[in-house]
Design a protein around this nucleic acid. Structure first.
Lengths: 231, 231
DNA sequence: CCCTGCGAGTGACTTTAGTCACTGCCAGGG
DNA sequence: CCCTGGCAGTGACTAAAGTCACTCGCAGGG
């Protein structure tokens, strides 16, 4: 499993450009962590211990409201890093992280990472690039929350999933949902019931076929039209 | 006005730690720009020309929706920089920027700034810190949009303004609003009418005294209670 | 095999948000 | 002095969003 560590580093944009020796050095400073689906890695406001890399599985970065609602900020898969930021500014984690699938992580302590950055200035530039991408995504979330309806966000999410993991058939694109409505609601910034209802409604309107967690997207262009038109 | 340039650099966190010679070198590469209140500096999606520093006035960074609504992402005053990000990742500006007050800016072209960063690795670390702060603010906006009502956001904004620029009197904290309801609506992610209505309602409930653009916050603790309690 | 618990679907309802249309106010320019 | 244009307030309405309270179905554990 140890040589695996370097493979993970190589797949992570932050470190992909390191020489084998540098990787070796860095790999020696990582530790492993396993999480089961649903397990919490850290909570919002926890002091920042260091940086995490996703080796396998998926991590969910989210905010939790006083009333128990969740808002997902990001879902990070293999090759992604997260919590880079508090490592630098010394603040606490601004959001919580839990495993949305069983996951394996690599951990690098704050100190080690900071030292490493000082010795490898180009890594700092990579950090900026990664953080920049994250920032763009957050701006996207704000845009969606501020300008669009739950219905539109749901449609956008479905189209995205269909594109990414759907299989084309002659009656439409088949798609298997891997999460509960609850989870989708958290990603869309709403509640379970609205996901359920909007799915039903989209089905009633003929855009979709819903059967349990299996979806058939029947009218992609129609859905896209829904996104574009203001009503 | 030219020596002024260095004063601005010194006030900007990104460059505050440079030596006088470095500042000199950098100052030589900046150009000035003046904007009148309301003037647009760049639009969303424009290709990124470089980095801007605020010398005086205020800049509003915002998103514009298809239907004409605005959502403010940040307001940057003297000493702030903005558009650092696209400088690095080469993408377009993710949002638009306009002057919310008459403003003077310093401009540094993408190339110059990149070269400068390469020669001064510690500046790159500063960039990370600045971007980190920005990211935290965006997460805050998402949290507000997702979890709170317009009413609560308005209350939070008023309390913030009262704290920052209000004057204490025995009938409450006096506060002069410097922007239109329209502008506040854009900051809160809603529409003019709701700002107007919610202000009236807060007055009716005895929390505020509204008279044109003059506000008297009469019950700070009551308002804070409104923020905490879910209803 | 029953019980339990989670996830899903839905009806009925309340509350917020947003839209439209109009009125009124005031400041500045012609 | 009138006209115009930007800003503010509000009534009346529609439409989203969210809440509450159930019911149903199914999978797993005891």
């Amino acid at each position: 499993m140890i040589d695996n560590t370097q493979a993970v580093l190589r797949k992570t944009p932050l470190f992909a450009s390191l020489t084998p020796e540098e990787m070796q050095a860095l790999a020696a400073r990582t530790s492993k962590k396993r999480l089961q689906r649903g397990e919490l890695l850290f909570g919002e406001g926890d002091p920042c211990a260091g940086l995490f890399l996703v080796a396998s599985g998926k991590m969910r970065i989210f905010k939790l409201s006083a009333s128990g609602r969740e808002q997902v900020l990001a879902i990070e898969g293999p090759g992604s890093s997260f919590a880079e930021l508090p490592v630098f500014d010394g603040g606490n984690y601004p959001a919580a992280a839990s495993a949305s699938e069983d996951a394996e992580l690599l951990f690098i302590s704050r100190k080690d990472f900071q030292n490493f950055c000082r010795e490898h200035p180009d890594v700092a530039l990579k950090v900026i690039a990664v953080v920049g991408a994250r920032l763009r995504r957050l701006v996207g979330i704000i845009e969606e929350l501020s300008f669009t309806t739950v219905r539109q966000r749901l449609i956008a999410l479905i189209l995205q999933l269909a594109e990414a993991e759907g299989t084309r058939a002659k009656d439409g694109i088949h798609l298997e949902l891997k999460k509960s409505h609850q989870d989708f609601a958290a990603e869309l910034g709403t509640v379970r019931e609205l996901v359920s209802r909007n799915l039903s409604r989209l089905q009633a309107e003929g855009y979709l076929e819903v059967e349990g967690r299996k979806l058939v997207v029947k009218d992609v262009t129609g859905l896209k039209r829904e996104l574009a038109s203001p009503e």
